[in-house]
Amino acid sequence: MKDKKTELFAGFKYYVPADFEKFMEKNAAEGWNVDKIHQWSSTSMTFQKTEPKKYRYVVDLNAFPTKEYKETYRQFGWEYMGRMASMYVWRKEYTDERPEAFTDCQSVRKRSMNVFWVLTALNIILIASMIALTILYFGNYYSEVSEDIAGYSIAMILLIAMTAITLYASNGVYKNRQR
């Protein structure tokens, strides 16, 4: 029997924080676990076969954590799994009631909105890049720089695709902000 499996792009597939948590918990219940979350876990994550575990996972985007951020979670019995960029991942084993790190609707919403704003910032950067690229390209229309229409088109198609994906994700996070 296989004792390892690799999940690709889990961090992108489950861009809604609550979905990523559920995904990790479902795997744990089926006996697939990770010891640590790494910078690139969102792209590729290897699970080891273990006993089935009842874990509660929590994903918390914190761009500017203070010194006591981790200590607060640890005092409440959360195990620090690691982070993907500013996405902190915590877990806690439990028996009866699934524990929560965000216990009122304001803080649940704030947790989601942190993700939403990061995606929105990314969107603005992507759109600004498209505008800058277009100005650069057509601004130099009569010079030789502009002969590379293929290069311009490929860059634009890539940027448009990334913008579409980011918009789709931020919309999904916003719609699910109460979860």
Binding site: V58, D60, E68, Y69, T72, Y73, Q75, F76, W78, W90, P99, E100, A101, F102, T103, D104, S107, K110, R111
Partner: peptide, 28 residues
Amino acid sequence: RHGYGIMQHVEELTNGRIKLGAGTIYQS
């Protein structure tokens, strides 16, 4: 009080009805 102490105190005040989570306490 520190974060964990607040959680314990609030739990006591509300007879266990409100159990503040780590994320909520940190944010607040």
